[in-house]
């Protein structure tokens, strides 16, 4: 594992720890409803401050159950993660392609190869690339 990958893994590990530790230490135990959403708690606080307040508009569409709601949240995360993964995959592929072209050009300067600037895929290039990858 390269130093780079280690740092990235460490970053993920700390994020995971920050999410898990409140659960492990039972930091929601003092609450009637542990680990409820802060948004919902704010609604409760509003009705505490102004008991007569009635929301004057209701959502056009409301997920009929918690399952549907979590499905839609998962969809949202999946869409985002999919696009991010596509981006990084594409970049990586492009960079490998550029490296391959470079390797082929270097190969092209080999006396046994075709003239420089030509397509020059004369054995040496692709082999060197696989070593790199």
């Amino acid at each position: 594992m390269s130093r780079n990958a280690k740092i990235n893994a460490l970053l993920l590990l700390v994020v995971a720890a920050l999410a898990v530790l409140p659960l492990v230490f039972g930091m929601g135990d003092h609450k009637k409803e542990p680990f409820a959403g802060a948004d919902a708690e704010a609604e409760t606080a509003i009705t505490e401050i102004e008991p007569d307040y009635e929301p004057w508009f209701s959502p056009l569409y409301e997920p009929p159950s918690g399952e549907i709601e979590s499905a839609l949240f998962a969809l949202q995360a999946a869409l985002g993660a999919g696009v991010l993964a596509y981006y990084f995959g594409l970049r990586r592929g492009r960079r490998q392609g550029e490296l391959r072209v470079l390797a082929q050009r270097e190969g092209g300067q080999d006396p046994t190869a075709e003239a420089p600037g030509g397509t020059g895929g004369s054995g040496a290039g692709p082999d060197r690339l696989t070593e790199r990858a």
Binding site: A19, P22, L23, M27, G28, D29, H30, K31, P34, F35, A36, G37, A38, D39, E41
Partner: peptide
């Protein structure tokens, strides 16, 4: 989950 016992 967060330290306050709620989620955000």
């Amino acid at each position: 989950p967060s330290v306050t016992g709620s989620c955000s």
